[in-house]
């Protein structure tokens, strides 16, 4: 290891006077020999000195004396139960004002799908179209695709539900992979949805459509996703009991398999 590389390793500790005697004397000796390192260190030292001049507000004793009383008031206010409908209403108003895209885009997407389904049902022969596209006689393939779709959706939903903004690393907030998978699942949902419509399995179709709405919202996440969007989605998933519905459907499927 060259002396300059070694001095770089000691640089920060030297800056904050945390080297032991031996390290300090080696570091000082190196700075005497190496102008480049000496200059770099002097510059950094001068920044530290300037930053030491920063003066921050000093609250008085009265402020600290009343600190806990103010906190108690806040805790009391928060502890009062807020009706769920009010929470939902506030979130909706907030989104409509600040992020209208989040509401209008999924609604537009769902409407588009609904219109497509309506046109398909009313103006084209549904039996022929679905049969040709989904190869309905091969029911086991169709069922395994549904199973896979539910499993993958569950993983995505779990990553959203388990995100805890209070303790998770906010720098690591990145849902780009979930967005990509959600895109694939939305495409898959179109296939599965049409198949279920053809087979008139309304309950499962409803679950698939609910999931599609959540997946569309994940696709709409700005950048990697932010805490507000995630919290909103978490409450949506919770209130519509989506995880429970998926679990029940899976149990039902296992039971049916067992009975065959």
């Amino acid at each position: 290891m060259s002396d300059c590389v070694k001095s770089k390793k000691l640089f920060l500790d030297a800056l904050y006077h945390e080297l032991n005697d031996e390290q300090q004397s080696w570091f000082d000796a190196h700075l005497e020999k190496c102008n480049k390192c000496a200059k770099e260190f002097a510059e950094a030292e001068s920044v530290i000195k300037v930053m030491d001049k920063r003066r921050l507000y000093e609250p008085d004793a009265q402020y600290w004396k009343n600190y806990c009383a103010r906190l108690s008031n806040k805790i009391e206010n928060v502890s009062k139960p807020v009706p769920v409908w009010k929470e939902w209403w506030n979130s909706l108003v907030h989104i409509l004002i600040f992020k209208p895209k989040l509401v209008y885009n999924p609604i537009a997407a769902v409407l588009l799908i609904a219109v497509g389904m309506f046109i398909g049902r009313e103006f084209f022969s549904p039996e022929y179209a679905v049969q040709e596209e989904y190869n309905v006689p091969d029911q086991s393939v169709f069922e395994s695709r549904i199973q896979k779709y539910l499993e993958r959706s569950k993983v995505i939903l779990s990553s959203i539900v388990n995100y805890d903004p209070a303790t998770d690393d906010i720098y690591g907030l990145d849902f780009s992979s979930q967005k990509e998978v959600s895109r694939q699942l939305v495409k898959e949902a179109q296939y599965i949805g049409s198949g279920l419509l053809y087979q008139q399995r309304e309950e499962l179709l409803e679950l698939i459509l609910d999931l599609q709405l959540v997946l569309l919202k994940i696709i709409q996440f700005e950048n990697g996703g932010n805490e507000f969007e995630i919290e909103l989605l978490q409450s949506g998933i919770k209130s519509s009991a989506l995880m429970l519905k998926i679990n029940l459907e899976e149990i039902d499927r296992i039971t049916r398999k067992g009975s065959f």
Binding site: F11, L12, L15, A42, E43, A44, E45, S46, V47, I48, K49, V50, M51
Partner: peptide
């Protein structure tokens, strides 16, 4: 943490170059 702190000091140095030169001269 080390590399980020090092980078932060470098950036601050650039932002506050006027004062750091003053301090260097004082030193």
């Amino acid at each position: 943490v080390k590399s980020t702190l090092f980078r932060a000091i470098k950036k601050l140095q650039k932002e506050l170059s006027f004062y750091t030169k003053e301090t260097e001269m004082e030193n």
